[in-house]
């Protein structure tokens, strides 16, 4: 029973001065992560202040946009813009660089997804100066 996946909405994310570079990069098809120059750790979601050592010396770098599914769910009931997109896949993806991020998996066959499956980033335009980083089976 492979229900077709309706087109996912791509709402404009909440952008603030701290996260603007991340969303602008997404609009250009690049996934950025933050690295701390003090302790060397990577983190996600991106912050100006490192969540591991509180250093302000955090810098952007580009992720290869590849990873594997940490966990996922096929959402069959939702509200708002997503009500008519069901069933859709919500997931955590662990990037090859280390951090795990919340996202959607774009697929026509959600029943075939599995934890550990390889995925790669795709970008869905979300209006002026932003795009949503989603993932598709690699």
């Amino acid at each position: 029973m492979n229900e077709p996946v309706a087109t996912l909405p791509a709402p404009m994310p909440e952008i603030n001065p701290e996260t603007k570079p991340f969303w602008e990069a997404c609009a250009q098809g690049r996934l950025l992560l933050k690295r701390c120059e003090e302790c060397g750790e990577l983190h996600y979601y991106p912050r100006a202040i490192c969540p591991f050592c509180m250093s302000a010396a955090t810098t952007w770098f580009e992720s290869k946009g590849q990873g594997s599914i940490y966990t996922f769910t096929i959402t069959r009931r939702a509200g708002g813009d997503y009500a008519r997109a069901t069933p859709f896949v919500l997931a955590y993806v662990t990037l090859d660089e280390g951090p795990t991020m919340l996202t959607n998996i774009v697929t026509n066959n959600p029943e075939a997804l599995a934890i550990g499956q390889r995925v790669a980033v795709v970008f869905h335009a979300a209006g002026e100066g932003a795009a949503l980083p989603r993932f598709a089976p690699a």
């Binding site: 996912l8 909405p9 791509a10 709402p11 404009m12 994310p13 909440e14 952008i15 603030n16 996260t19 969303w23 996600y44 979601y45 966990t71 996922f72 769910t73 959402t75 009931r77 939702a78 509200g79 708002g80 813009d81 997503y82 997109a85 859709f88 919500l90 997931a91 955590y92 991020m101 919340l102 996202t103 959607n104 979300a126 949503l132 989603r134």
Partner: peptide, 16 residues
């Protein structure tokens, strides 16, 4: 910005 845009629901998060 990094969560709500992906259509998270309370049940969905617990399901994961």
């Amino acid at each position: 910005g990094f969560e709500n845009v992906f259509g998270i629901t309370v049940v969905g998060m617990y399901a994961m």
